[in-house]
C-alpha cells in the first residue's frame, strides 16, 4: 500500500506549523509512487475545522478524532489511535515532526507496530531497498545516511527541514474512533505551564540572540531581550553556565545537552564558545559573536566578530538594528 500517514500536531485547538510540514513531507513521499496522504487530526470537538488547511498542503484524507477529553493532548491515546489505523489500513510510511510532541509519539507508534524508526531526520529519499534518511549524530558532529528497511517506515522529521508547501488536495474528512477510552489514559496532564508570550520558539525563530556568562548578571539579559525585540522575530537563548546559575530557564539552553538550533542568524553575546555550546548552534547560517576576549573560541566559528564589552556594544547594536528595520 503506497499511502502515507502524517500526524497533524495541534496545541490549544490550533494546528502547529510542524503539522503542515509533516503533511508536506508525507506528500513528497507519497508522490514518488502515486499514493495518497492521510493526515491524522486529534483534539476536542471542533478540531475538524482545521482539516481544510491540511488539505491545502496535500492531504487527500483527513482522519479526525474528536473527543472532549482530548482538549488536552494525550500521547497514549494519539499513539494507540495512529497505530490502530496503520494496522487496519496499511500505510507505507508514517510521518511525525521531531517536535517535542512528535518525538514523544513516534517511537511509541513504531514499537506498537514492531518496527525501528528514522529519528530527527534532516532529509529522506525513497530508494530500491527502503527509505534512506539523513540524521545528525555524535553531538551533531557527523551526518549519517541510514537505510530503513522496515515497513511501514516511521519517521520524525526535524522541524524546519521540510518547509510547508501548498499542494491542494481534497482533504476529505473521515471521522475515526479513539483506539482506547480517552478517559482511561494512565498518564494525565495536570497542568500546562505557559512560556513567555510574544517570542517564537527557539526551534522556529529565524533569529536567535543568545547570552552567556559574559553578561555578568541576570538583569543584564534585558539587553539581550531588547536586541531580540529590535529584530521583532527573534528568540532568546543561553548557555548552560547561565541556565545553571538560574539566570535563565533551562529550556532556553542551547547546546549538546540543550536545544539544537539552525536559525538564519545567531548572535552570541558573552559566550565563550565551548564545544558543548557549539554542538547546538554550529549549523546556524550566519553567526555573530560579541566577546571581550579576542581569543575566545566562539570567534573561530563566527562569521562576524566584535571584540568588546557586551554591556557597551549590545545597546548600540540594538539601536542600529531598530534603525535598519525602520529603513525597510
Amino acid at each position: 500500500m503506497p499511502n502515507v500517514l502524517a500526524f497533524a500536531e495541534t496545541r490549544g485547538g490550533d494546528l502547529r506549523k510542524v503539522a503542515l510540514e509533516s503533511v508536506t513531507a508525507a506528500r513528497k513521499l507519497a508522490d514518488t509512487q502515486g499514493g495518497e496522504v492521510h493526515a491524522m487530526l486529534v483534539g476536542a470537538p471542533g478540531i475538524g475545522a482545521r482539516a481544510d488547511q491540511l488539505g491545502r498542503h496535500g492531504a487527500d484524507v483527513v482522519l479526525v478524532l474528536e473527543h472532549p477529553a482530548l482538549a488536552q493532548h494525550s500521547a497514549e491515546v494519539a499513539a494507540a489511535t495512529v497505530a490502530a489505523r496503520v494496522k487496519a489500513s496499511g500505510y507505507d510510511a508514517v510521518i511525525f515532526s521531531a517536535s517535542a510532541q512528535g518525538k514523544d509519539l513516534a517511537p511509541r507508534v513504531a514499537a506498537k507496530l514492531g518496527v525501528p524508526m528514522g529519528s530527527d531526520v534532516l532529509a529522506f529519499q525513497r530508494t530500491g531497498g527502503g527509505i534512506e534518511v539523513k540524521h545528525a549524530g555524535y553531538a551533531s558532529k557527523v551526518i549519517h545516511t541510514l537505510m530503513l528497511t522496515a515497513s511501514p517506515a516511521v519517521l520524525s522529521v526535524r522541524p524546519g527541514a521540510i518547509p510547508p508547501a501548498e499542494s491542494p488536495k481534497s482533504g476529505r474528512v473521515e471521522a475515526v474512533q479513539a483506539a482506547m477510552d480517552p478517559g482511561s489514559a494512565k498518564v494525565v496532564v495536570k497542568e500546562m505551564v505557559p512560556g513567555r508570550a510574544g517570542r517564537p520558539d527557539l526551534g522556529e525563530a529565524p533569529v536567535i540572540v543568545s547570552g552567556g556568562r559574559g553578561l555578568r548578571a541576570a538583569e543584564n539579559f534585558r539587553l539581550v531581550e531588547e536586541l531580540a525585540d529590535a529584530f521583532g522575530n527573534a528568540a532568546v537563548g543561553c548557555t548552560r553556565a547561565v541556565a545553571d546559575d538560574g539566570w535563565r530557564p533551562q529550556s532556553d539552553q542551547i547546546g549538546q545537552t540543550g536545544r539544537t538550533v539552525s536559525p538564519r542568524l545567531y548572535i552570541a553575546v558573552g559566550i565563550s564558545g565551548a564545544i558543548q555550546h557549539l554542538a547546538g548552534m554550529r549549523t546556524a547560517k550566519t553567526i555573530v559573536a560579541v566577546n571581550r576576549d579576542k581569543e575566545a573560541p566562539i570567534f573561530k566559528v563566527a562569521d562576524y566578530g566584535i571584540v568588546g564589552d557586551a554591556l557597551e556594544v549590545v545597546p548600540v547594536l540594538t539601536a542600529a538594528v531598530r534603525e535598519a528595520k525602520k529603513g525597510h
Binding site: P116, K141, V142, I143, L146, T283, V301, G305
Partner: peptide
C-alpha cells in the same frame, strides 16, 4: 532494519573573521 550506509563529517565552518573592536564596529 536500520543500518548506516554512509557517515560524513560536515564541512568545517569558515568563521574566524573579527570585524572590529567595540561600538565602533
Amino acid at each position: 532494519r536500520l543500518e548506516p550506509t554512509r557517515t560524513e563529517l560536515p564541512p568545517e565552518r569558515q568563521g574566524g573573521r573579527i570585524i572590529g573592536e567595540g561600538v565602533a564596529a
